[in-house]
């Protein structure tokens, strides 16, 4: 396991915006067929880290290695071409476009020649539906359906299937389950497992510990731009992880203090602290 070259690796990556340091010495590795869960509260630097991986930002110091080779992306397009795909919270799809058209946006299949190259609707719809169904979403069977008519989980699945279809090897999922209900989230988690089974390196960003534990092989907790903990599956309990994410402040302490307040104040919750 340890001597395998990771698909993607970060070595001591720092990112500063002017005088503000956002990421400090981030080192991460993701192997083929492995899910790395990146946990962290809002403002911990998750977004900056994703954007650095996706080529939106360039690291100030440190390096990114792809298959052991140092790489530097100047544009997001470049990262994509090298197989790094990012799927955002809302799927990054177009609600008013059909599934087929949305799936192939930017890389439309055409038939015909010269100025009469016509968008090949049938092929696009067929491939899109096949790709999604291969991921186990059998409810999508009509490529003419509008993306906006799909559920949140189906949209995420469509976006993930799209990324995989276009040759992604590293899949960055930015809070894919944050806006979803329990059933829909389970849907997406199944897709993540399927992507893992197909040998992709998945970086799964979330602040829902339960979701992370359901699919993760490897966990990293980000606090104020630094990795506060780095452990493998089974090494820590759910409570321990939640405590870590809350910045060391024990969740249990917090809970008991709230309960104490409620007891002495007729069941009212304490006023929020700013």
């Amino acid at each position: 396991m340890a001597d395998k070259t990771p698909v993607i690796e970060l070595r001591n990556v720092d990112k500063s915006f002017g005088p503000i340091d956002v990421l400090h010495e981030i080192s991460l590795k993701v192997n083929e067929g492995e899910v790395l869960c990146l946990l962290g509260d809002n403002g911990a630097g998750k977004s900056t880290l994703i954007k650095t991986l996706a080529g939106v930002h360039q690291p100030t110091r440190g390096e990114i290695l792809l298959d052991g080779q140092p790489v530097r992306f100047s544009r997001p397009k470049q990262a994509q071409e090298m197989g790094i795909a990012t799927v955002h919270q809302f799927g990054g799809t177009f609600p008013l476009m059909s599934i087929g058209r949305s799936f192939f946006a930017g890389v439309e299949p055409t038939r015909g020649w010269g100025p009469f190259k016509v968008y090949d609707r049938k092929t696009a719809n067929r491939i899109a539906v096949e790709a999604v169904q291969n991921f186990g979403i059998t409810r999508i069977d009509d490529g003419d359906r509008l993306v906006g008519g799909l559920s949140g989980g189906e949209r995420q699945s469509l976006a993930i299937a799209r990324a995989v279809h276009f040759g992604a090897r590293v899949l960055i999922l930015d809070e894919p389950t944050a806006a979803l209900g329990v059933k829909q989230a389970a849907h997406v988690l199944r897709i993540v497992n399927e992507a893992k089974r197909r040998g992709l390196a998945v970086i799964f960003i979330t602040h829902q510990v339960m979701h992370a534990m359901a699919v993760g092989d490897h966990f990293a907790v980000l606090i104020r731009g630094a990795i506060a903990a780095d452990f493998r599956k089974g090494e820590k309990t759910r409570e321990e992880i939640a405590d870590l994410m809350a910045g060391g402040e024990s969740m249990a302490d917090l809970e008991s203090s709230i309960e104490g307040y409620m007891e002495s104040h007729d069941g009212h919750v304490p006023p929020p602290v700013h």
């Binding site: 177009f94 008013l96 476009m97 930017g106 016509v118 968008y119």
Partner: peptide
């Protein structure tokens, strides 16, 4: 009918 249209919608 062309990909350019698709781009405009996107």
């Amino acid at each position: 009918a062309t990909r350019y249209g698709n781009w405009i919608f996107a």
